[in-house]
Design a protein around this nucleic acid. Structure first.
Lengths: 166, 166
DNA sequence: TTAAAAATGAGAATCGTTATCAAAACAGTA
DNA sequence: TACTGTTTTGATAACGATTCTCATTTTTAA
């Protein structure tokens, strides 16, 4: 069961999970070129990871990834996800519970945020209002003034209880 | 060296790190009563933890806590911090780097957010504009409508590089 | 006091993640 | 194609933060 989500208002190459075949191809192309920039190869194992994350709606843990694609070896998956994160192809979300979650980076999915289920540890994507984003951006400015701190990004995550845990 | 920070605009019992002796006493009183609610005792070890966190400016890791108070045992410190978190006396901040950070809960310190240093893993407290908070609150509303998700809190954290890592 | 319950602390165990290393796959060159 | 050096792989071991175990100590309440 794989559904296509709502269209997001970001410029190319912002794409959605559950993206169609044409878009998936450009994901692979972009991934390959991003890897090449750091002299990494776009191997079969790495392609399988990107493929899997591209067709999945929402971030996955490593056990979930391994369960979905039985051909992936644990140690290689960890190593390759690290490489993909380094090349900004994948984002790693360190959650509240045990396992980290992985998803295609915001380069592909567009800037978004997360819902963390405090009960089961599941993580969902959410988009938020541009006006909130703008406010956060202005917050950056004031932090820059008050503190000697060089901002590089932010996380605005909501914690609560997901449908299956309510 | 222990300084008193700026006054925050939250109702009692919002207090600051580096709080004075009188306020520290009320922290202990509140901690004791919160523990009692769940039938926990306010033991010496727990008091030492609260004392330490109350007089420190910003969240601490467990190694930092043990280094500061040599009388605390590692396993007991972990166990007691867990109890204190459970009683909402302490907040646990799972950072980007290895160790989690602990600080007095927002019940004592007021609602605030964090700066994560991507380089050294240090975590600082920051306060943000009420208007940002309001926007986030309204965000909750829309999430409630769109998803079957029961919100319980949020984190708005800035990632970047702290003064000593720039 | 005394008995039951809770807390302690040293060490062992757990578990997500990372490192190791020999074998396999690959790229470039002649 | 064969050669050579580099990258990747995957099984396994190691690591490290946190949690668990359990005998001992402390505390509570009768």
């Amino acid at each position: 069961m794989q559904t296509v989500g709502p269209v997001r208002s970001f410029s190319w190459p912002c794409m959605l999970n559950g993206m169609d075949v044409v878009k998936q191809k450009s994901v692979h192309k972009a991934a390959e070129s991003k890897l090449a920039e750091l002299s990494f190869r776009y191997t079969t194992a790495r392609k399988r990871l990107v493929e899997l994350l591209a067709k999945t709606d929402g971030p996955l843990t490593l056990p979930e990834i391994l369960a979905t694609d039985k051909k992936l070896a644990q140690s290689s998956a960890y190593r390759n996800l690290e490489v993909l994160v380094q090349c900004k192809i994948v984002d790693r979300i360190s959650g509240i519970k045990e396992h980290a979650h992985y998803e295609l980076s915001e380069f592909f999915t567009g800037h978004h945020h997360h819902l963390f289920c405090l009960s089961c540890g599941d993580v969902q994507d959410i988009e938020i209002d541009n006006c909130v984003e703008d406010t956060i951006a202005s917050l950056f400015e004031s932090v820059l003034k008050e503190k000697a701190f060089k901002p590089a990004g932010h996380t605005l995550d909501l914690h609560g209880y997901c449908a299956s845990c309510i």
